[in-house]
Structure formats: structure tokens, C-alpha cells
Amino acid sequence: MNIQKRLQSGKFVVLAEMNTPKGVDISRFMTYAQHIRGRIDGVVVPDMDNGVMRMSALAGGALLQQQGIETLINVYGRDRNRMALQGDMLAAHVLGIQNLIVVQGENMACSDHRDAPPVNDLDEMGVLNAIRNLQAGKDMAGFDLDGVPQFYVGCHMAPFADNAAMDAEIELARGKIAAGAGFVITPPVFDMRRFGEFMKKAAALQVPIIPTVFLIKSVAVARYIATNEPGAHISEDLIRRIRTSSDREMEGVRIAGETIAQLRKEAGGVLLQTLGWEHRLPAILDAAGL
């Protein structure tokens, strides 16, 4: 059963994010994917996430599809105009990629190619509308397509600092769903009570909500997020738990696993995000009892 069918039939899906290499050595990328194959429902391949130039998500997604792993690739307009986006989405379809997640890109000023001009031809709504057009057999200029692609499309919700920002993000998601998004990826969960409050409101969106489970790699990372993103709700207790652990790395893995286990009752699925520590994904799945 593919991801779309699982989500639409109310089954919990486990997705893992895997970044493509910055180069052409795909050995680790493929090996780590094999380690989680069969234990997860799909792999999300970001496209130059956090503004780091890497092998494109299209290639990463196609490689995993060839291995029989269902993929979801991120699409957005920072680096590609409407021509390139549409062309790459057609390419994605023929390479077997059935799922797209429309996201916001990191600002080019915060990328590792700060001297590059950002494109920003289409925003998230623009990309969603372009996908809808393609699925209706037309490109954005109104020309007919020779063969029509079909995708299962998701959208992304940005982190929110307070209740007002949460409401605003839910409103934005409502617009994206109206434009064709069938599920929503939400920010990392570090506080189940806070997530419960969010879900009371987000349930009204009536599509599967897939929260991100972020692997906290160190006390420094936890402290950084707590300081710079108060809306993430990383508590002092959580930071203390990692700090006082005899194996801090493993404590982060356990916390991620526990979070997944708790979210099984609350959400449509989870997206595991390790930001380069994909080798830890099996341990997180172990900790989650998956």
C-alpha cells in the first residue's frame, strides 16, 4: 500500500528525511536507505535544504525509487523558475516519483552560495497551482501536455512562535489544501501537550497532519533551539535529561523514539529529521518500537 493510500485510509505513516550528497558519492545515501527499507513507509528527499548546494532531490528520489523505496521530494521556487519546476515535475513523474511536498526555501542570503541570485518566480501557492494545472493536462502557459502526470501532494507548515502565529499558519495551510495539498508536514514536536493544543485546531483542516520528529544531537543543539525558537517548546527538563545522560547521543535517539511512539495516537504520521545523521535512523526506529 503506497503512502497516499495509507494516509487516506487513516493508517499511520513513518517517513524519514534523507539528504542527497554534496557530490556524486551516493554510497552512504544508498546504504542508509537500505538500512531503513521496509521499516518506514517513505523517504522525504529535501532539495538543497537549509540552502546547501547538493545533488538535486529529483536524482535522489529517482535513485531510491529504483531501489523500491517510495519517495517524496521537496519542491519550491527559490532556485527554479516556472519552466524548470514544471519540467522537473514531469521528469519526477516518469522517474517513478509519485509524491511532492511543496515547501519554502531557505533564504539565499543564508545559503552556502550567498552570491547567487534567488529565482522566487513562484511561491508555495504558485507551485501548488502549477501542479494542479499539470494534473489537469496543461502547463502554466495553457498548452496541452502530451501525457498527464499524477502526484500526491503535500504542503509544509513553518514553525510558529505563539498562538497567533499558529493560527496564521493553520490559515495558510487551509489555502494550500484548497490549492491541492492532501497532507501537511508540521514543525518539530518537543512538547506533546503543546502539540495536543495544536492538533485541536489543526484537526479542522481535515487532512492527515504529519509532525516532524527532530533528532536532538547534543545539549548545544537543544539549547540553541530553545533560545532561538521559543515556539518549539524545548523544556529545561528535556535539556537536563540529555545533559545528565551517560550517553547524550543515545538519549537524543531515545527522545525521538518516544516522541514517535506518543505521536502514533495523535497524528497521521511522522517525518523523522536527522539533518545528516541518517545512520541513526534505525536506532530511532528501534527506540520507537517500529
Binding site: 539565499m108 542570503a109 550567498r114 552570491d115 547567487a116
Partner: peptide, 12 residues
């Protein structure tokens, strides 16, 4: 060479 677009609009 490839232009540094930061002094332009690229950096916000």
C-alpha cells in the same frame, strides 16, 4: 566570472 549578486537584490 560568475557575478556576485549580493550587492544586488540577492541578499535581501
Amino acid at each position: 566570472p560568475a557575478k556576485d549578486w549580493r550587492p544586488g537584490r540577492a541578499a535581501g
